[in-house]
Computed example of a mutant assay.
Amino acid sequence: MRQSMTGFASRSGETAGLRWGWDLRGVNGKGLELRLRLPDWIEGLEPLVRAAAQKALARGNVQVSLRVQGGGEESAAELDEAVLARILSAMARIEGAASGQGLVLSPSSAAQVVALRGVLSVNATPADVAPLRAELMAAFDAALADFGEMRRREGAALAEILTGQLREIEALVAQAAEAVEARRDEQSERLRSQIARVLDPAQGMDEARIAQELALIAVKSDVTEELDRLTAHIGAARDLLTAEGAVGRRLDFLMQEFNREANTLCSKSGSAALTQIGLTLKTVIDQMREQVQNVE
């Protein structure tokens, strides 16, 4: 089943007076890029999270964050005297320097000082983090499963859109083949008319020369190979949409090949009808390529 690279999942809970919450967010990316925001005091957590994520995910820019906060009476805030002393000493030096420059600073309130980082500390960190780490990892695995499920749902919707666009491309290729047949008669008649205007009617037209010119035009404007390759690309894309594993990169490369053939078709069209079909084809291919960017 196809997976999108877009997804979100969260899990939260409380353990030993600590409230915690996991958040996983993913968007498209060329490879797998993990950005982890984890509390550094939970020893050994980061390598476990990274290994679990790398095992479950193949592509995408994924941000994983864990918030841990104190809760309950055990985690009541306490004043850190040492930090407060350093902050007050720094404030005094700043005020003295400002006064020496003739500047008067507005006074700081106690609420502003308390809000400074480190002045109030929460002493709810367990001495042994192993049980907390195990519980957090169990919750992370569950969040990772939710994240994968959301990506699969998005991927299923994406596969349906891509399948519909492939049907549009297939129909346009069939229309192009019909236009090529109609163009052949038009080109022959146009060439005969042009030659008739420049040749003396009494001399008549050299049928061999006309046949030679028509053959040259046919070689320059033949789009049979382009149409055949487009048909082959449609089959390859359908196979990739049902294949196992991450196929986004291969689909993206295939879209480049689609676009190359459509460009060649337009440049060799030789008729307004075929050009219009080629331009419509390019539009659908561009739309499909935008969707492919989200496929894992």
Results as ranks from 00 to 15, higher is better:
141 D>V: 09
256 Q>G: 01
52 A>I: 03
290 E>A: 04
121 S>F: 00
88 L>N: 05
285 I>F: 03
62 V>K: 02
161 I>L: 11
288 M>D: 10
72 G>W: 04
62 V>N: 08
278 G>V: 08
163 T>C: 15
119 V>P: 13
110 A>H: 10
45 L>F: 01
164 G>K: 11
4 S>K: 09
170 E>R: 13
237 A>K: 04
4 S>L: 12
154 E>V: 12
188 S>P: 03
27 V>T: 14
57 L>T: 08
51 A>T: 15
159 A>R: 13
7 G>P: 00
224 T>S: 11
170 E>L: 05
40 D>Q: 01
131 P>S: 14
151 R>G: 02
11 R>C: 03
45 L>M: 04
269 S>I: 00
243 A>C: 03
205 M>H: 04
42 I>E: 06
101 Q>A: 15
252 D>I: 07
128 D>K: 01
145 A>V: 09
38 L>G: 13
147 F>P: 11
165 Q>Y: 11
235 G>R: 05
261 E>C: 07
291 Q>P: 08
93 R>Y: 07
76 A>T: 02
119 V>F: 12
87 I>P: 01
189 E>D: 13
255 M>C: 15
122 V>L: 10
213 E>M: 07
93 R>P: 03
76 A>S: 03
134 A>C: 01
167 R>N: 06
84 L>V: 15
160 E>K: 14
130 A>F: 09
78 E>C: 06
33 E>W: 03
195 I>V: 14
205 M>T: 14
116 L>Y: 05
294 N>Y: 13
266 C>L: 05
8 F>E: 02
225 E>P: 03
245 G>E: 01
269 S>G: 04
204 G>S: 09
206 D>M: 08
183 R>D: 12
89 S>G: 10
283 T>A: 14
5 M>G: 12
90 A>K: 06
159 A>G: 14
288 M>Q: 09
118 G>E: 01
36 L>R: 00
293 Q>M: 14
204 G>V: 07
257 E>A: 05
216 L>N: 11
202 A>C: 00
26 G>H: 06
221 S>V: 05
107 P>H: 12
256 Q>R: 08
